[in-house]
Design a protein around this nucleic acid. Structure first.
Lengths: 203, 203
DNA sequence: TGTACATCAGTGAACGCGCGTTCACTGATGTAC
DNA sequence: TGTACATCAGTGAACGCGCGTTCACTGATGTAC
């Protein structure tokens, strides 16, 4: 066991990630600083530079972790959604995740995304493909499943952010869930109409 | 004419607002600082304190102005929308506004909103009521017009933020507009189904 | 098993920065007489 | 019309802060012989 000593940490990289997450969970405001993370990890202000090139790469790592957790949270809500009801359950999980981890969610989306971070790009792609996959499975007949997937994502994402920014009634989880379900159902009870509308918008 | 001199400014309050807006338009990143605003207004770092209690009240004033402009931009898109097509045009205007003024839009929504600022609260209410009014006019028969309005707002708001955060294809205004129109149409071609879905979600 | 040494993962002092905010001040304005 | 004075709207020095990042360093680890 090498991490019993105080000097060599053992796994400072992971500890930084954990510290960053703790700070985000505790303080709703998203400002994540390298120094604060180091402090929380019980290490000198410059130690994280052994593991992260700069502040941004730490934030990217945190965001990537957030995407992975979000994906896990969604699949946990329903492993293989195939009906509008299933899909609504996944949508509720999305908004719930944002409300439960507001600072993390903000870090994932509001911080400028650097295209350099392959880890982050990959994690984002997972979400996109996941949503597209669901929509394709649930509506095999849809002409433009990708556009439909974008619509769902935007709807749910918008609900999440409006809740985060205090623009909607978030008093109880049930109120939130009902709104999300109602919105998704409204959208999905007419899925085939989408591609039709998209086509008519072209002209 | 008193503003010819350099000492007394004339209307520093308005000048600060203008300076803040310029800074937001120039630099996509939202960090608005009192000192930078003062600098831009050509005034000492502490002069703005004559007109704003602190940084937050400046930001609130900027946000309120943003809400008012957004409202104007929406009504300009269509003065009295009554069909799904009209409504889609307004939705396009919303997303367009966000894309054209990303930093302002972020300041309006992402910054923590202080309930103290009556000006800001009022400006937000205007947007909400505006959207609700449109939905009520366009769908007089809808059982729960407010829930429907929230759904529209969330959809459009989500599209706006996903574009801002580089998660969707924003290559040309036309691509964006088509997506927005398609999404709104999909939602609205079945408006009456919403309240029904909401009711079934309750059980 | 023991020693020499390269490598690795931390430390801690220091840099320059921009920030929000306070304070005592001073120059300009406008009003009362 | 002219003067005295209150008020108003700025100035500028100063405070303490936390930040990202650099640098030369040192203690711990592990490998080669």
């Amino acid at each position: 066991m090498s991490q019993s000593g105080t000097y060599h940490h053992g796994d400072l990289r992971a500890a930084c990630l954990r510290a960053a997450r703790e700070l985000l969970e505790e303080d709703g405001s998203a400002g994540l600083s390298l120094r604060a993370v180091a402090r929380r990890a019980g290490v000198s202000p410059t130690a994280p530079y052994r593991h992260y090139a700069d502040r941004e790469s730490l934030v990217s790592a945190v965001a990537a972790e957030g995407y992975r957790e979000l994906a896990a949270h969604l699949t946990a809500a329903h492993p293989a959604p195939s009906t509008p009801d299933d899909l609504a359950a996944v949508a509720v999980a999305y908004v719930q995740f944002a409300i439960e981890h507001p600072a993390l969610f903000r870090a994932m989306f509001a911080e400028p995304c650097d295209p350099t971070s392959a880890e982050r790009v990959a994690a984002t792609a997972v979400i996109t493909e996941y949503v597209q996959g669901i929509v394709r499975d649930a509506f095999p007949g849809a002409d433009d499943a990708d556009a439909l997937a974008t619509t769902v994502w935007a709807l749910v994402h918008g609900l999440a952010f409006l809740h985060l920014d205090g623009k909607l009634d978030s008093s109880t989880p049930e109120v939130v869930a009902d709104q999300v379900r109602a919105s998704v159902h409204a959208l999905f009870s007419v899925a085939p109409a989408l591609s039709q509308a998209a086509a008519s918008a072209e002209q």
